[in-house]
Each structure stands twice: as C-alpha cells, then as structure tokens.
C-alpha cells in the first residue's frame, strides 16, 4: 500500500513543513528562554513578513531573493520595536502581565491589518519558475520546496554559529540559563533581549514568506495557528534551547504529515487536533521536552 516513493514523498513534505516550524519556533524559544514569555505576537510578525513579501513580489521586485531578505530585515526591526514599546516597560513584572500584553500586541497588529488591507485573503503568486516541479526517482518537489529547506538550514546554521561563537551569542545563552547570574556578570540584558527579538523576528518573517508562497495566500490571521504550533514544537524539543526548537520543529512537521499521509483519509480533518493532543501527551510524559534537561518545571 505504501510504496517506497510514497514514503519518500511524505518525508520530503515533512522536512518542508518541519523547516518552517523550526524557523518560527527558534524565535519563540529564544524569547521564552530569556523572559519566560510566550510571545503570542510572534505569529503576527510572520504575517507581516508575508504581507511585505507580497507587496514586493507583486511589484515584480528583482532579484526574487530580495523580496524575502528585505521583509526579514524590516520585520527584524519591527520585532525590536515591539519589544521596546510593549515588553521592556514590563521587565521584572509578573509573567502573566507580559503574556496579556503579548496577546494585546497580537490583536493590535492583526486588527490594524484588517483595518488597512481588510480581512480578505490575497493571492501570493510567485513567478512561474519557482513552483516548477522536479521529479527525482518518482519523488516530486518544487523549486520552492528546495528553497524552503535549503534556506532554513542555512539560516539555522548561521544562527547556531552566531550563538556559539560571538560574544552576544554567548551572552544570550548565559542569560537564558540564568538571567540573574548573567546580569551580575555584567551582561547587558536589554541588549541581549533586543538581539533575540531581532533574530527571532527575522526568522519568523522568512517563515512567513515561505508559508505564504507554499499555500499561495496571505490573510491577517494567518500567523495564529503556525505560531501556536511552533510553540508546541518548541515544547517538544525542550523550551528555551535553540537546538530543541529545531528538533521539535522537524519532529512536529513529520508527525503532522505522517498523521495525514499514513492514516485513513477520514482522519485528515483532525490534523490540527492531533498536534495539540500531542502537546498534552508530551506535557504528561516529558514536560521538559527532548533536549531540556532540568526538572525544575515539574510541580
């Protein structure tokens, strides 16, 4: 029933979806690691990135790769702006306060888009060549799929190198491990948080562009579900740990695709329910995720 090519096809689809989840989850996990904040506005930065990409793509901006890089840069700064305006005044406040604020920020961004560009979904059409299908040994993928995976891996590798080797990167890991101790060692927390928001938002914008290209549409509420699922991915991998977000992203991508691909079609409508049932299961059996080592979160 499941031929090798069919299985290979599912794996390709899983890698594809997983790459996008991983990109989104990295930003969420960096911010959570530093501030213990579940940033509900993260998915909306993804949406803004997609809209900005749409603007450039429909203006036939060339080369095409710039329609991806420009939104990444701009949304990176939007991320810094959001942090500066909404989250920094709350530094040291109870976690719930920031959580509510991030919900508010999310709602403000979404509804500003509804007000200015309306809630009407818009088509996100790339030049014809990008969606061209290639078939290798019976397994087919588009140029976009290859771009998605290649770009995600490149971005994640760059981020890993940055966090491993630069002073700011090391400061970031130290602060995620123990914020108070890091501050006592003279690390400028505000700067670290700013960099985390910049990088995370950049990756979210990239994911937004790829997501919009894959599903050929953008709308103001498109970021909600990917953002939420990416948080599940971050929890699966171990929240606060960047490699965990990557691992969790790919695992979730595979799980979701396999759920649809290898179960009877009657179940495929329950795809999203499956993801969150998985979250409950993970929280029950391994709340610290796969790479999260400490057990302090357990009551």
């Amino acid at each position: 029933m499941f031929t090798p090519t069919y299985v290979a096809q599912q794996i390709i689809n899983g890698v594809n979806l997983g790459s996008m989840y991983a990109l989104i989850a990295i930003g969420l996990t960096m911010v959570y690691g530093l501030l213990r904040l579940i940033n509900f506005a993260h998915g909306d930065l993804l949406m803004l990135g997609a809209y900005l990409g749409l603007l450039l793509v429909s203006a036939a901006f060339t080369p095409l790769i710039l329609t991806l890089f420009i939104p990444m840069l701009v949304i990176g700064f939007v991320g810094i702006l959001v942090e500066r305006l909404a989250y920094r005044p709350l530094r040291g406040a109870p976690e719930v306060t920031m959580l509510i604020t991030s919900l508010a920020v999310s709602s403000i961004i979404e509804n500003s888009m509804v007000m200015t560009v309306t809630a009407q979904p818009r088509a996100f059409n790339l030049p014809a060549g990008v969606n061209q299908l290639h078939t290798v040994a019976g397994v087919s993928f588009s140029t976009l799929d290859a771009l998605t995976v290649g770009l995600s891996v490149a971005l994640m590798a760059a981020l890993t190198l940055y966090v491993r080797n630069t002073r700011t990167g090391i400061a970031m890991r130290a602060a995620a491990e123990n914020l108070r101790a890091a501050r006592l060692m003279g690390i400028d927390i505000n700067r670290v948080v700013m960099v985390a928001f910049f990088l995370g938002s950049m990756l979210a914008a990239a994911a937004g562009w790829l997501w919009a290209a894959k599903y050929s549409t953008v709308e103001p509420f498109m970021g909600f579900l990917p953002g939420l699922k990416a948080f599940v991915a971050a929890v699966i991998g171990g929240i606060g740990v960047i490699p965990g977000a990557v691992l969790g992203g790919y695992l979730l991508g595979f799980a979701e695709i396999f759920f649809v691909g290898f179960l009877p079609p009657a179940y495929s409508g329950y795809r999203d329910a499956f993801v969150f049932a998985l979250l409950l299961l993970i929280l029950l059996i391994r709340p610290n995720g796969i790479l999260g080592a400490s057990t302090e979160e357990r009551a």
């Binding site: 213990r36 579940i38 976690e95 719930v96 959580l99 579900l225 939420l228 948080f231 599940v232 929890v235 999203d272 329910a273 993801v275 969150f276 979250l279 409950l280 299961l281 929280l283 029950l284 709340p287 302090e296 979160e297 357990r298 009551a299």
Partner: peptide, 19 residues
C-alpha cells in the same frame, strides 16, 4: 497533565483545546 507544571503552559494548552 498541565497543572502539574510550573510556567504558563496552560495558556497554550487551552488555546490548543480551542483548536
């Protein structure tokens, strides 16, 4: 599963329940 944990996993889990 969720209320045994510290941190605000409940926020995400309940949103998941909504989905």
């Amino acid at each position: 599963p969720v209320l045994r944990l510290r941190g605000h996993y409940l926020a995400v889990a309940t949103l998941g329940l909504m989905v």
